[in-house]
């Protein structure tokens, strides 16, 4: 199935969790936050939250700014 991860369409296997999406992007999940269709998914829920067809997953972190 297809999902949109950080703005890019990607194919993932069914029952993929938020945790797995995060791990596919970074080895350092400290300082990272996730929005699933614009709603924050708290870290405690990453492992149990599955992504669905056409979901938008944004994985954000602190960068230089301000």
């Amino acid at each position: 199935m297809d999902v949109i991860i950080n703005g890019e369409r990607r194919a993932v296997s069914p029952r993929t969790t938020v945790e797995e999406v995060v791990r596919s992007l970074t080895r350092e999940p400290g300082g990272v936050a996730v929005a699933l269709n614009d709603e924050v998914v708290p870290k405690a829920g990453w492992a149990t939250t599955e992504v669905g067809e056409n979901d938008r997953i944004d994985v954000l972190t602190a960068v230089q700014g301000g």
Binding site: T26, V32, D58, V59, L60, T61, A62, V63, G65, G66
Partner: peptide, 11 residues
Amino acid sequence: TVALRRVSPDA
């Protein structure tokens, strides 16, 4: 201050 942006795999 820090800003929040999408994770970049090659950061």
